[in-house]
Computed example of a mutant assay.
Amino acid sequence: MKQNASLIETYNDYFDIEVADTPDLLREVFALRYQVYCVENPFENAADFPDQLEKDVFDDRSVHGLVRYRPTGWVVATVRLVLPDNDDPGTAFPIEQNCAASFALSGLNTRLLPRRSLAEISRFAVSKELKRRAGEADTLAGVGPDPEAYVKPLNNGKRLIPHVTLGLFAAIVRMSAAHDISHWYAVMEPSLLRLLTRFGIEFTPIGEPVDYHGLRQPCFGAVEQVLEGMWKKRQDVWALITGDGADWPPPARYTSASR
C-alpha cells in the first residue's frame, strides 16, 4: 500500500519507539514527565521531586514506552501502561481512584472486567520541543483544539505531533502484547481522543469528563475491538501501530479479504 509505506517511512525518518526497560531509559522517562507535569504544566508539585524525576506509586506496577526524536536523540514523548496487580486483581487503577463519579454515572461494573488482563494507559506526555502550533503548549499530548489540522497531509514531516502520537500508541500496543493485556482504561484530553478517532482509534467514554490534570475523559476499550476498528478505517495507521502485524496480528476474519 503506497499510503501505508509513506506513513511508516516518514515516521521512521523522525522517530524511534523504545520500551524503557533499563535504569537509564527510565530516568529519561521520569525526567520528561517532570518537565511536562511539573514545569510546563504544573499539575504536580515540583518541590515533591528534588531529583527532577516525576514518579508515583503506580510506577512500581507499570511498564513505560518512549519516543525518541532521531535528528537530536532526545526523548520527546512517553507513556506508561499501569498493569494489573495479579496478587490482588481488585487493587484499584488510577482511573478508579480519580474518576469514581464518572463510573457511577456510566453504570460500568469494574468487577465484571477481566482484571488480570486489564491495564491503564497513563502519563501521556509530549515535550514542548514538538508543541509549536497555537493551543498545543498547554496540553500534555500536544494536540491543539482542532484535530483536523493534524490529519491531512499526515506525510508532511513538519507536522510532527500526529506522528509522535501514533508512536506512543505503537508503544502501548507493543507493551500490551508483551503483557497479555486484553482491555485498556485511559483518561485522556478530549482533543487527543478526537485526534485518535480521526485515525480510527476509538475508545468508549465512561461517564462525563472530569477535572483531573485539566479536563479529561475517562474511557475504556477492548484491545481487539480498538485495533479491528483501526484496521477497517485506517490500515496505514494500523500498520504503523502494530509493526505491520509483528506486534499484534491483523483481525483473522479480515485478513484473507483485505490483504
Rank of each mutant, 00 (worst) to 15 (best):
residue 11 Y to I: 02
residue 13 D to A: 15
residue 17 I to M: 13
residue 17 I to Y: 04
residue 18 E to M: 09
residue 21 D to C: 08
residue 25 L to Y: 14
residue 38 C to T: 06
residue 39 V to Q: 15
residue 41 N to D: 06
residue 45 N to H: 11
residue 47 A to H: 08
residue 51 D to I: 03
residue 51 D to T: 11
residue 53 L to F: 03
residue 64 H to T: 07
residue 65 G to D: 09
residue 66 L to A: 14
residue 66 L to E: 06
residue 67 V to C: 15
residue 67 V to R: 09
residue 79 V to K: 07
residue 84 P to E: 01
residue 85 D to L: 05
residue 85 D to P: 07
residue 86 N to W: 12
residue 90 G to C: 03
residue 96 E to G: 07
residue 96 E to L: 04
residue 97 Q to L: 13
residue 99 C to W: 02
residue 101 A to R: 15
residue 108 L to W: 04
residue 119 A to R: 01
residue 120 E to T: 01
residue 122 S to R: 00
residue 124 F to P: 02
residue 126 V to M: 10
residue 127 S to M: 12
residue 128 K to G: 09
residue 132 R to P: 00
residue 133 R to D: 04
residue 135 G to Y: 03
residue 140 L to Y: 02
residue 140 L to I: 01
residue 140 L to R: 00
residue 142 G to W: 01
residue 142 G to R: 02
residue 144 G to V: 01
residue 145 P to G: 08
residue 149 A to T: 12
residue 151 V to I: 08
residue 158 K to T: 03
residue 159 R to S: 10
residue 163 H to S: 09
residue 167 G to M: 04
residue 167 G to F: 04
residue 169 F to K: 03
residue 174 R to Q: 15
residue 182 S to I: 05
residue 183 H to T: 15
residue 183 H to K: 07
residue 185 Y to R: 02
residue 185 Y to C: 05
residue 188 M to I: 10
residue 189 E to T: 07
residue 190 P to W: 03
residue 191 S to Q: 14
residue 193 L to N: 12
residue 195 L to A: 06
residue 197 T to Y: 10
residue 200 G to T: 10
residue 201 I to Q: 04
residue 209 P to R: 05
residue 214 G to T: 04
residue 215 L to A: 13
residue 222 A to D: 14
residue 222 A to R: 14
residue 225 Q to N: 14
residue 226 V to L: 14
residue 229 G to S: 10
residue 229 G to V: 09
residue 237 V to E: 09
residue 243 G to F: 11
residue 244 D to N: 15
residue 248 W to D: 07
residue 249 P to C: 14
residue 254 Y to E: 10
residue 255 T to S: 12
residue 255 T to C: 12
residue 256 S to F: 15
residue 257 A to Q: 13
residue 259 R to I: 14
